[in-house]
Amino acid sequence: MKATKILERVLAALPIMLGVAITVFLFMRLTPGDPVDIMMGRGGAVSEGEIEKLRSEFNLDKPLYTQLGIYLKDAIHGNLGYSYIQKYPVTTLIIERLPATIELAIAALIISLVIAFPIGIASAVWQNSLLDRLSMAGSFLGISMPSFWFGIILILLFGVQLHILPVQGRIDFDAHLSIKTGFYIWDSIITGNHVALISTIKHLILPGITLGAAEAAVIARVIRSSMLEILRSDYIVLARSKGASEWRVILKHALRNALIPTVTIIGLQVGVLLGGNMIVETVFSWPGLGRMVVSAIFARDFPLVQGAVMVYAFTFVMANLIVDILYTYLNPKITF
């Protein structure tokens, strides 16, 4: 029963993905500017024959719907076209950069959850206490703060003033990490390279906090408000009347219910995380997908931009799909 419902959700996500692919494709093709000019670097001195060759190579000489058909067919096979500038398959370029981005995103998510859960729970339990007021003011700040500026301030403080944390890149050059998967934490653990592991973790802290701060603020607020509502409910009195300790009441009976709205907001926040990723990678010179997209935009390398935007949108749809599925386990009342 549950399995068929999950399958239904997965199938419902497919047309959205198709729509995303078509939208991205149309956007790229309908904007002014001849891709061939970009590929040639506006240098001139290129023969007509070469231009024609390039046109047919990139299928630019065919009608729009044929191009779309070819594009979609290729996309299903994992082929997102060729980069105009780097002359590599877009898929290859994206996959190369993806581990860095995923590692940072996971670090940010972990940091935000580690901050948000204790703060959200504590400020609900001790409502109106100094702790509550301070953390709610802090979360307001987190929501209102532009992440790129926060990143710069962190760099100024911890990198420039205190010199305690690295502010650029993923790892120190002298860590000698042999790269296997591209996930540096994983790589340094399996190769037993402690120096590289510590260096990687240090490099993750500032960008992770920058990216995770706003998430933490939003998630903490949701946890707090739902915990407040739940702690007033009858079933909390029942749990106490059974003889459960106060912490058990809060962490088992209340938190388990508060997870339902919290997971929803975490799913939505993945979108913010992905967008913030471009900004934070730019600020911290993080060699990930986001930074590649930003430079691709300036180089007018449209296939690469298009491919990356699709990957982002796809990730977002997947994240919400996972949330939907998690929901069926968290909330016994769920009926789709």
């Binding site: 959205i16 993905m17 729509g19 995303v20 993945v270 979108g271 913010v272 992905l274 967008g275 913030g276 471009m278 900004i279 935007v309 982002y312 949108a313 977002f316 749809v317």
Partner: peptide, 8 residues
């Protein structure tokens, strides 16, 4: 449109 994160 909702399938795209806003900033992206």
């Amino acid at each position: 449109l909702l399938a795209f994160p806003f900033l992206i």
